[in-house]
Amino acid sequence: MSPHHTTEADAAAADAAATPAAIARARRKAALAGFWRDYRSHRAGVLGLVMLGVFALVAVGAPLLADPAGLDITRVTAPSHAAPSPAYPLGTDENGRSILTLLIYGTRISLLVGLAATAISVAIGAAMGVAAGFYGRWLRSLLMGITDWFLVIPFLPLAIVLGTLFGASLLNIIVVIGITSWPGTARLVAAQALTVRSRPYLERAKALGADDWHQMTRHVLPNVMPLVLANTVLTVSVAILSETTLSFLGLGDPTQVSWGSILDHANGSGAMSRHEWWFVLPPGICVVLVVLGFTLVGRTLESVLNPRLREAGGR
């Protein structure tokens, strides 16, 4: 067979292999490559990603970094309120437990609460926002009225009341934070969905027989997802701060160790009046760093995924 015939055969084989699924995968791969190229050009976003990666590794590898027996008050033998030493780099708490061990395992709870509460918040906010932006009229007025009602009520008093009613448990804290932090997401998504609803391809989809559910899930939701994704990352930091605040106020799960509960114990045991900085500063610094990491990543995602911000940054 001649080289000319071989080339034509290879081209025909390539055209046959280019199925719609393969083309879609290639487009997604190219889109992800372009996204990562744009993202890594933002140094702040890369720094935030590295910071979150470190905390994630600490949370996953907690049993390898510290013995979980160190959390059991009945099994510790160290003196209480001990200053930092080679054996206890960050000292001990009022029960003789290593502060470093508490910090390591507290990373798990703080991140878990932040991510789980954010999932609830974003699910509620996205659903409310898409429905309000797509349907409009009286339903939009009703849903936005409910959203405004939640926005008017101060978050902390509402969370305290709900936390007191539901009781102190990890699941209740997640639910309380999730159902009190969704209005901001709903407002943003509703505004974006309203603009998407007026685009011509939705009219074409409707003319072809697409029902409301198909239009919302296949056309509206994918177009608002970049905004939802960026807002989700920013919401995690708010949820972690909320968990820290509620735990510091004594509304957290007493059986679980989080950064907020460490601060609560420090305050209750008089660590601040004793000038025991090792009991107060480490959990506070961890909260600041993880919130900063999520904020940097969220702002970078917003800049990369929002064409308007990207064009403004390039000017």
Rank of each mutant, 00 (worst) to 15 (best):
A14V: 07
S237N: 08
L65S: 04
D10I: 11
V280Q: 07
L100K: 07
D10T: 12
F134I: 07
G314M: 13
I104Y: 11
E302W: 02
L246G: 05
K206A: 14
A26H: 05
A56Q: 00
R140D: 15
T77I: 14
R310I: 04
G298M: 08
D15F: 03
S242M: 10
A69R: 10
L64F: 14
G48M: 01
V46F: 04
A11T: 14
C286D: 00
R37W: 10
E243D: 12
A9N: 12
A123E: 04
H42V: 02
D15R: 15
T232E: 03
A205V: 03
G106F: 05
L234F: 02
T235R: 08
A14Q: 11
A24T: 10
H275N: 15
S258Q: 06
T300S: 08
G209T: 03
V257W: 11
H81W: 15
L289E: 01
G53Y: 04
A186K: 01
I120G: 09
S169C: 10
W277E: 03
Y135R: 13
A271E: 08
L221A: 15
A9I: 12
L64I: 06
T185F: 01
S198G: 15
S181E: 10
H214E: 05
T235G: 12
V233R: 00
P154I: 04
A132H: 07
A207F: 09
V46S: 05
R108W: 06
R199H: 03
V54E: 01
G184H: 02
A117V: 03
L64C: 03
L47W: 10
A16C: 00
D212W: 01
M225C: 04
L263K: 06
A266L: 11
G314I: 02
I120L: 15
L263I: 13
G250P: 06
R27S: 07
L102S: 08
H219N: 11
N223E: 11
G298T: 06
I109Q: 12
A126F: 05
V287M: 04
G184D: 05
M51T: 05
G136I: 05
L156A: 14
F155V: 12
N223D: 09
A159T: 08
E243L: 09
A127W: 13
P183L: 01
V130N: 09
R37S: 10
L296Q: 05
P157R: 14
F279S: 11
E203F: 01
D93M: 11
R299I: 00
G61E: 07
G91Y: 09
A11F: 11
D211E: 01
V280R: 07
R75T: 14
L251I: 04
R75C: 08
D212R: 12
V176W: 02
L170T: 12
P154S: 02
A78D: 15
L249A: 09
H5G: 06
E94H: 13
T74W: 09
R43Q: 07
A193L: 01
W182C: 11
V287D: 03
L309E: 02
A33G: 13
A13P: 04
N306L: 11
A69E: 12
A11D: 10
R108P: 04
L208Y: 09
N231A: 15
V54W: 09
T92E: 10
L90E: 05
L301W: 09
L301G: 06
P20L: 06
